[in-house]
């Protein structure tokens, strides 16, 4: 079982790498590196949507990621690393990679709920595999739209920030989370370890 943390020019690559190193064989990998040996590729995320999309396009990830999936590999996108897997975001004008249907809409602030949504929120699920409910760290202004949230075929994570928000999904070997497991203390560590164990158990 090998994990690759993808360095495509954005994101807190080393934070994710440091956490994964605690319980898995992990390397920081570039878009042009061979990925055959990696069961799970993680796209970290700190950044704006358009900037991240520009980098994914420049790195040829629109071809690399589907190829990885077609060989039975898994992907985990974190924050903007998840967002770029979708079709579009109100934050930018560029199209996303569209590996997952759906778009991101700007959160609306209301009294007691400023935007960005920043801090630790409870995350729950009814169907997401192996997920242990608890508090995770969020920092974002855009979230998956309700339409995507209701779409068929997703196993989902939910949170609440005034309204229900979409905190994560799993479908067709793609995990995506809006929160930052690498910065969510013991809950985040358990979450990442469980994903890695799940992928390990699914590996052919």
């Amino acid at each position: 079982m090998k994990v690759g943390v993808l360095d495509y020019g954005i994101g807190n690559v080393k934070s994710v790498y440091r956490l994964c190193k605690k319980f898995s064989s992990v390397q920081i990998v570039g878009p042009q590196d061979p990925w055959e040996d990696y069961n799970l590729i993680i796209l970290p995320g700190v950044g704006s949507f358009d900037h991240a999309v520009q980098l994914t396009n420049a790195s040829n990830l629109q071809a690399q990621l589907p190829l990885h999936l077609s060989k039975g590999g898994f992907i985990l996108g974190i924050c903007v690393g998840m967002q770029v897997l979708l079709e579009s975001s109100e934050e930018g004008v560029l199209p996303g990679l569209a590996l997952v249907e759906g778009c991101l809409k700007k959160l609306t602030s209301s009294p007691g709920y400023p935007v960005p949504h920043m801090g630790w929120s409870e995350v729950s699920t009814t169907d997401f595999p192996f997920f242990v409910e608890g508090e995770f760290y969020f920092t974002h202004s855009y979230a998956l739209s309700k339409e995507t949230f209701d779409a068929d075929g997703y196993q989902t994570l939910k949170s609440t920030y005034h309204d229900d928000i979409f905190a994560g999904f799993f479908r067709d070997n793609i995990f995506g989370v809006q929160f930052h497991p690498e910065k969510s203390g013991t809950n985040g560590r358990d979450f990442l370890e469980n994903i890695i164990n799940y992928v390990d158990g699914s590996a052919l």
Binding site: K14, R18, V46, Y137, K183, G185, G188
Partner: peptide
Amino acid sequence: CSESFVPLAYIGGVSQITDFDRLFGMGIEK
């Protein structure tokens, strides 16, 4: 940064865009 698995923010002396690049790259969130 290598000792923190909770969010880290940094203030002080940021003066150019490459400072942001390096800080985010090493694991500063804000």
